[in-house]
């Protein structure tokens, strides 16, 4: 596994070594069957949404109130399949994808006994952690873009494109609509990367990748559940997931930047705290497997 590949990397102090290490990490993530299957599941949601809307409601425009977000706009423009799918997958599916990769990062290597070989290569522990985290962030971005990209493709095939109606009722061209969708993907990647940082920390605590993954998903769900309880409203802005739905603010005219800025600040705070905690934990840990 990765130990073998990394062992092939010459232990030089050159500039290319870290990049090659990252490359091997990324290809490791990409070649895992479970990750490929997970990506396929993520991509299936927008396809299901598009087909379901197409089959059940071929002519009428919008079903009014109720139902998941953006669903009523899909018949008008296929790009909304991507937005509906992102909104649907944001609570559980995307976090599970992040948790699967992040939980595996350290605990997975420890579990199959490759972690100590990795460290004897020699790869500095801090660099190993950094490469693992970059791998998580790239994986998160790919997951998000897969959902959005599949959604756009399925939507355009079944419903066609055209001008995009924003939440504020104004319309923009298709090109700008796609740009805003890309911005949403980047914003969600930043948000989910915060969960990835929590995950990397959890992954340094255990040698059971499954346990780490479950713990990360539970952390995510607890955050969502706490966000639903109105009695603890004072706590909500500090929850990991509180600002995730603010991606909709990129669809207003003009864009409401304040919630987005708060969301990025919140994500940055989580990333700094949990990455440094992961670094402290991993640096002091006895690696025996």
């Amino acid at each position: 596994m990765s130990a073998v590949e990394v062992a092939a990397v010459p232990a030089t102090r050159g500039f290319t070594a870290p990049l090659r290490f990252l490359g091997s990490e990324l290809s490791l993530i990409a070649r895992r069957r479970r990750n490929q299957a997970g990506l396929a599941v993520l991509a299936s949601v927008p396809i299901i949404v598009a087909i379901a809307v197409r089959v059940s409601n071929p002519t009428s425009s919008g079903s009014g109130d109720g139902g998941p977000e953006f669903l009523s706009s899909i018949t008008g423009n296929g790009i909304f399949v991507a937005l509906a799918a992102l909104a649907l997958e944001l609570q559980l599916f995307l976090p599970i994808a992040v948790a699967a990769v992040a939980g595996d990062a350290i605990a997975g290597e420890a579990n199959v006994g490759t972690l100590r070989y990795l460290l004897t290569v020699p790869v500095h522990r801090t660099r190993l952690l950094a490469v693992k985290y970059v791998g998580i962030v790239v994986g998160t971005f790919i997951a998000t873009v897969t959902v959005a990209g599949t959604g756009v493709l399925a939507g355009l095939l079944l419903f066609g494109g055209g001008d995009v109606t924003l939440l504020s009722g104004t319309t923009i061209g298709m090109g700008e609509g796609l740009l805003r969708l890309l911005a949403i993907c980047l914003y969600l990647t930043a948000c989910l990367a915060a969960l990835g940082a929590v995950g990397l920390f959890v992954s340094t605590l255990t040698e059971q990748p499954m346990g780490a993954t479950i713990a990360i998903v539970m952390f995510n769900m607890i955050s969502w559940i706490l966000g639903l309880i109105p009695q603890i409203e004072w706590l909500h802005p500090y929850l990991l997931t509180h600002w995730w739905n603010s991606f909709g603010d990129l669809l207003r005219d003009p864009v409401a930047w304040d919630p987005l800025r708060n969301g990025l600040l919140s994500a940055a705070a989580y990333i700094v705290i949990f990455l440094s905690a992961a670094w402290a934990r991993f640096g002091t840990r006895d690696v025996t497997s």
């Binding site: 018949t75 109606t165 104004t170």
Partner: peptide, 12 residues
């Protein structure tokens, strides 16, 4: 610009 509103296509 902020006060101009044209109902988007497809809206009731």
């Amino acid at each position: 610009e902020q006060f101009r509103f044209n109902p988007p296509p497809g809206a009731a």
